[in-house]
Design a protein around this nucleic acid. Sequence first.
DNA 1: ATTACTACTCACCGAGTAA
DNA 2: TTTACTCGGTGAGTAGTAA
Lengths: 218, 218
Amino acid sequence: MKCEMFDVLVELAKKKTRVTTLDMAKRLGSSQQTMSRKIRELESLDLIERETAAKGQFVSLTDEGAKFIRKKYLELREIVERPKTESIAFGGVLVSGSGEGRYYVGQDEYFLQFHEKLGFRPFLGTLNVRLKTVQDVKAKDEMENMRPITIRGFKKDNRAFGDIRSYPCMINRKARGAVIIPERTHHATDIVEIIASEDLRKSLCLKEDDYVHVEIRI
Amino acid sequence: MKCEMFDVLVELAKKKTRVTTLDMAKRLGSSQQTMSRKIRELESLDLIERETAAKGQFVSLTDEGAKFIRKKYLELREIVERPKTESIAFGGVLVSGSGEGRYYVGQDEYFLQFHEKLGFRPFLGTLNVRLKTVQDVKAKDEMENMRPITIRGFKKDNRAFGDIRSYPCMINRKARGAVIIPERTHHATDIVEIIASEDLRKSLCLKEDDYVHVEIRI
DNA sequence: ATTACTACTCACCGAGTAA
DNA sequence: TTTACTCGGTGAGTAGTAA
């Protein structure tokens, strides 16, 4: 990445005050002329104050310049010192699907990818969970901002099957499975579809309207 | 300052993973096309990994990208959390000057500026101190990296008098004065010249070869 | 809706050089 | 030495548009 304005500001802030354009150019891999211009630009932006002398120039940050650097620093701190492990969880009630899920999961092209990429052969049927609260929907949206395991779409019989995004998860803290979200979803945004290697209705003794808890594994 | 490459990387790092080029463009005040190109550039620099989907793209930092941000963060921390007050001090022995100092300080144009900018009317004579150790010379060089109070040069009688840099200081922890360094210095780099409102030789009872301590007020 | 290609303009870079 | 000007070549930004 080439020498950017901000790099120049930072380099000036590092050095106490006295700099030469040539020295700055060498440090930042640029030319003396460009440094001269960039330093003058920073001055016209009121980020630095300067006084040219016979041997170089005296540069100091203005309050605004210091504030600017501090702002960037806090921004980076936010990123670097961000807690690594957060867990995303939401829940809702079991609703009956249209049988569509079973149809899609049953497509060989999808099925094989589920096995390869998720590590299990899905049961031919999906669990449809309707989210009830805004917190739950928010958590689901946050999940969607994460990088999914993408199941590739395909064409067959003159029909297009789109990509499916999948997110490995725990259901009711007991069973492993995955939330799946078709790229061109037919569902309203408050319903999520879940697959697993087993028939979750049976193995977790779930029936219509029962509460289902979903936790995304990060 | 316009949108730079690093800003794009930081913005991508802030967002967890899912972004669109248009959204990024709005955030950073740029165009969708430029964002598209910049994100692809970051990918080709191996700073991010990405996967484009129908609705936007999933972007995540590579190890190298995270390392890059961390490096910048540490750089800024160094600046922002740098201790504010350091003191610069050095010392040497009193040597006799050539009377040159008296001549220069006596020039009205300089004299008036000393009074205005340093706050005292200098005694017509300078104290010449020869630095003995490399530490002392280093401390003096550090002083020269600070922003001086600049006494402007002038032309008179067909002669050019150059700028003089001055640094307010304490002499022997007792008297206030200033180190002065002519822009075109005649001295070797191990000699500093000091002025004060009084005759320091008298008021501090100094004689040839006596040790003189100089502390710069920051 | 999205990404990203092409074409075009404009601004930036830096060699040469003045002060 | 140093800063900073001019100016020609080039790289960056973006409108239009395809996919």
